[in-house]
Each structure stands twice: as C-alpha cells, then as structure tokens.
Nucleic acid binder design. Structure first.
Lengths: 200, 200
DNA sequence: TAAGAATATTGAACGGTGATTAATTTGTCA
DNA sequence: TGACAAATTAATCACCGTTCAATATTCTTA
C-alpha cells in the first residue's frame, strides 16, 4: 500500500493526469482506464475517486492540459512577427501540426462529451476563449473596420473551418487521400475566407 | 429460442441496424451494446456475430445508413431550384439540421474510429464521395472557371468548414452560446469563402 | 417416414470496464 | 501510548465485447 501522505491530493491529481496523457499517447483512447492510470502512478483505482469525481473529470483535466499545450504552441508563432494573414496561416498550421502529432489527445478534446450531470466548468471555457483570442488579434489587424463581435465571430468561423479541415483531413474522411490534403485544405480555407471578408 | 430461419441473415442484419439506430437515438452512444441490440430484435448477442464480424462492423453499417439519410436530406434541397450560392447555403443548413436532429448518429459518423484490422471499405468511401458530389455541382455553376480538381478541393474545404462549424457550434465549444451561433457561423463561412473564391 | 447431417441459436464463460463500499492501514495529536 | 481521522486497498456490482461448447431446429437423404 502506498504510504499515506506520500503525495498530497494535488500531487496525485497531477500524477494521474500525466499518466493518463502517457497512456493516451502510447495506446490511444481505448487504452485509457481508471485501473491503468492508477496502476501507472502506484495506486489503486479507488484512490482516483478521492481526487476526481469520476473518469470523466479526469479526462476533463487531461483536456485542460491539452488546451494549455495547444495555446503555447500557437502563441509561439507570435514570436516571429509577420503580416496578419501570414500569421493566421502560421497559427492554423501550428494547430494542425499539433493535431497530427498528438492525435489521440487532440481528438479526445472533441470526441469526449461530458455527461449532463457534469457541466463544463467556466475555467475550461475560459481556456477555449483564450485560444480563440490568439487569432482575434491578427484578424483585427487585417480588418480594422470589424467591430468586436464581428471579429469574435470571424475568429470562430475561421477556427471552426480549420478544425473541420483537420478533423476530416486527418481522419481521411474526404476521399481525397494523402497527407497533402489537410494542409492544402486549411490553406485554401484561410486564404479565401479572409479574402472574402476583405472584399465584403 | 428464436426459431431457425425465422429470418435470413440479411434480415437479421437489417433488423440489428434498425434497432441500433433506435437505441442510439433514444439513449445515445453510451447505451449502444451488442446485448441491447440483440435483445431488441429478439436474439442473443452471439447471433450478431454470425452476421457481423464485431460491434465495429455493425456500427459501420449504422453509419452507412446515416450517410444515406444525410444524402437524401441534402439532395432534397435540389427539388426547389435557385441560384448556386443560395443552393450551397441551403445544403449547408440541411446538413446542420440533420446533425442537430440526429445528433448521436451524426456524431457517431465521426467519433467512431474503426480499428486497424477493419479498414473502411470502398463502398463506404463511395457514399462519402457521393455526398461531396452534391455540393460540387453548384460550385461548378458558380465558378465555371475552376477545373475539376479545384472544384473537388473547394467542395472539401467548404464542407470541412461547415462540418467544423456544426461540430463546434452544436457542441457549444465556441464560448459564444446559443443556438443562433452555429447557423450564423455556417452562413458567414459559406458566404465569405465563396466570395473569396470569386474575387481570387 | 426415420435417421443423420447441417446449421441457427443460446447460454455460459473470460477478461476486461467504471463505480462504490467496507475494511484495513497509516499518520497525527492529545 | 492510545484514540481518532485520513488514506488506501480489496472486494464487489453491474456492465461490456467476444468466443465457444452445447442444444434446438431444420434439411437431406435413404
């Protein structure tokens, strides 16, 4: 038996999330289970329920960590400045590369629906909003005449599109195979949507 | 015990798919299990394995049925003719309404990844391609200068975008709540993407 | 028509799952 | 040191997908 107070609840929580990420990366969504996560950190399944309400809440925290990394990855594009349109493209590609390189985790972000009794907490929505905020800035630069809500909407539309292209492209649901497809799609989407907004 | 030859294999297959759809509609993805499907058609789980390789193959057929309905729903928009751009919008809305009204089934279409030993059959990909073909026609009308592959790509881009907007919008992942959001997003996407292509 | 072959169907079993709980171990403090 | 509180486990429950021997039913042949 692991000794009491070897780890605080916070530590166990953190360890569990990290272990879950490892399992997810190595064995995909199917490989993820309470027993395996607990085993990987030297505890038993029951212990996890001291720290999370259930598996769904653990997954929520895994997803939060994924969002954080995604944010970091996209924000990193800001380090080398360029014109707004190129910046948006770079961000889109960063999103796509993250999705490709961390497929199971990225996928879990969208395929895992929380049960009704566990609503999405506002701190989680805040993380999502921060992600969108990253792309709102270059949009604002590119189209200074857009008011705040229009800009917000544009960022959602653009990101939904990029996301859809990633989802369908990376899942080979487009019946035009190959790795090229997804990149091409994203590029065409960003270019023409922005172009359309400009010539509105 | 159900009497032998009460139903042919084809009948059992069809009954199982229909039962699965009902369960899916009423209890969501979580409620779907071999035992429940079998029970609903008066058989035992084992019988299903005479007719499907495994649950994944059953789900594949459920998804095929979903694609067929989706195709019918979108093709129905062609009955009342209008200009190409309006047609594409109508089709997008039809897609979205289907997704909204048949959420569990639509969602299963994308969230269920087949295991590696069960590759997606070509007849399934063909159904997907037929769906895309529906939107290729009005695109061709709107932009007659596009060559075949450009048109094909445009349809994929557009549909990826519409799909992404549905996924994120209907899942409330956009942190701009409300039912309005998804419709608005799709509208903005279609309008501006096409506008962008025209002014290219 | 009777017997035997063939097949449809079941029911039990296996190893897994998430979740809950009683029982046990451990650390802390009076 | 002893009692109390907290941490942890082990056992349990009700499921899951899948397999397979046993059984019930039909078909074929004599």
């Amino acid at each position: 038996m692991a000794r009491r107070s070897d780890h605080s609840r916070e530590e166990i929580q953190q360890m569990a999330v990290r272990a879950a990420i490892t399992i997810l990366t190595e064995h995909g969504k199917e490989g993820l289970s309470t027993r395996k996560v607990a085993g990987a950190i030297g505890y038993t399944a029951g212990t996890l329920y001291l720290v999370f309400r259930n598996l769904d809440e653990l997954i929520l925290h895994v997803n939060a960590a994924t969002l954080d990394e995604l944010h970091k990855e996209i924000a990193r594009q800001l380090e080398t400045p360029c014109d707004p349109q190129s910046m948006i493209k770079k961000m889109s590609m960063a999103y796509m590369n993250f999705a490709r390189n961390n497929f199971a985790r990225w996928s879990l972000l969208f395929t895992h629906r929380l049960p009704e009794e566990l609503p999405i907490p506002e701190w989680f929505d805040a993380k999502v909003a921060e992600l969108f905020a990253l792309v709102e800035k270059p949009i604002k630069q590119l189209l200074p005449d857009l008011d705040k809500s229009e800009c917000k909407r544009a960022s959602r539309v653009l990101w939904s599109g990029v996301h859809g292209a990633c989802e369908l492209g990376l899942n080979d649901k487009l019946t035009i195979g190959g790795k090229v497809a997804a990149e091409e799609l994203v590029e065409s989407l960003v270019e023409n949507y922005l172009n359309g907004l400009i010539h509105q």
